[in-house]
Design a protein around this nucleic acid. Structure first.
Lengths: 194, 194
DNA sequence: CGTCTATTTGAATGTACTCAAAAGCGGTGG
DNA sequence: CCACCGCTTTTGAGTACATTCAAATAGACG
């Protein structure tokens, strides 16, 4: 069924009754966005939380020099939002763009709030989500500080298995915080060694 | 009073009744640790969540080369824990050490769980804490990827006002992900420019 | 087939590191 | 009070990692 993966996703942290599940599902809007289209544009307010049911998006920001930096990929079964913008109704610092044609279930801020007050279990779900998100992100800070690009690439492969086959090197380089030119040089070196 | 700052800290996200506050405070243990002593040692399980009421600690890990890297400072009024270790009873990857003589209020995992089931508002508090933590950390990932050391230093000053006066350059360098030698060179350059 | 973008390659440059040594500074004991 | 010890900071030289700019090549898409 359409919602199978999402239900499984939610159920890994909380157990909802059939009615509660219905309430939750009824709040979702389904949307399909084309390759290259934006789920969130920089400077606008992030009005929805998104669950990716099919496809792939990237979360990016532009640095002072105008270069695009990818802070996260979200393939199937990932949740994605600009948290600061969503919670605090601030203009988004990040933008979210589809790398492939993507299908999302989205939850508005109003629905999100209603959900938490109607079904307190969702507080637990949110807790899990952001605590785990924090742990994963801390791990990434650590890598960024101490590992050379070569090992960050390995970590990328671990975190997003198979994703290297789905996206361009340019995007991988942007995620790793190096230039595509330098990534290309590394790959040549690796090819030579094997 | 002893708990004033802590109560204010909690009250910024939730409103507790006097009884609830009593329950919370009664669960805390107060502890003083000497300069250089450990609040958490690498490899042991992080059994407490800590609120720093006085002093200053650092959260670090050792990289493959055995170098110490600081991922966060926690001065007065900050909370600090190795979340992954605390939640999942894993051996801690990080260690937490006092830079100055430090006084903490600590909450055991059992107390933490009891608190959340007795007073559901604490779910909201945790949510706030980790969502805000996530936002701040994401900001740090971003810096690590795209900003040069010089601008990371500026961000450090903003995040921890006055802390540069309290700690050695060695520690700042470790937080910024550069060597003390290189930081010293930067400072010479800055002094020359002004 | 032609156009647009991604990737590769090369050369020159810049940023940050290592190693080594000297200088500064704070605390301790005689 | 001074001398010494250990640790931090500074300085210098040489090196490694990653960047920029530019140009050539390869791929993808209409």
């Amino acid at each position: 069924m359409l919602y199978d993966a999402l239900i499984k996703n939610i159920s890994s942290s909380i157990s909802l009754s059939a009615e509660e599940l219905d309430i939750f599902l009824s709040m979702l809007e389904c949307r399909t966005i084309a390759r290259g289209a934006y789920l969130l544009e920089k400077g606008t307010i992030c009005r929805h939380d998104h669950y990716i049911s099919r496809g792939l998006v990237k979360v990016c920001y532009l640095d002072d020099a105008g270069r695009e930096n990818i802070i996260k990929f979200a393939p199937e079964d990932w949740w994605v939002v600009d948290l600061d913008s969503f919670l605090n109704s601030k203009p988004a610092f990040y933008f979210i763009q589809a790398i492939e044609e993507t299908e999302v279930f989205q939850l508005s801020r109003a629905a999100h709030d209603r959900l938490h007050s109607l079904i307190p279990q969702f507080h637990i779900f949110s807790n899990m989500r952001w605590q785990n998100g924090f742990i994963a992100l801390q791990h990434r800070v650590m890598q960024g500080l101490s590992l050379p690009a070569e090992e960050r690439y390995q970590q990328f492969l671990q975190k997003y298995p198979g994703l290297d086959q789905r996206i361009s090197q340019k995007l991988i380089a942007s995620y790793l915080g190096i230039t595509p030119v330098f990534l290309s040089m590394l790959r040549r070196k690796w090819a030579h060694l094997s």
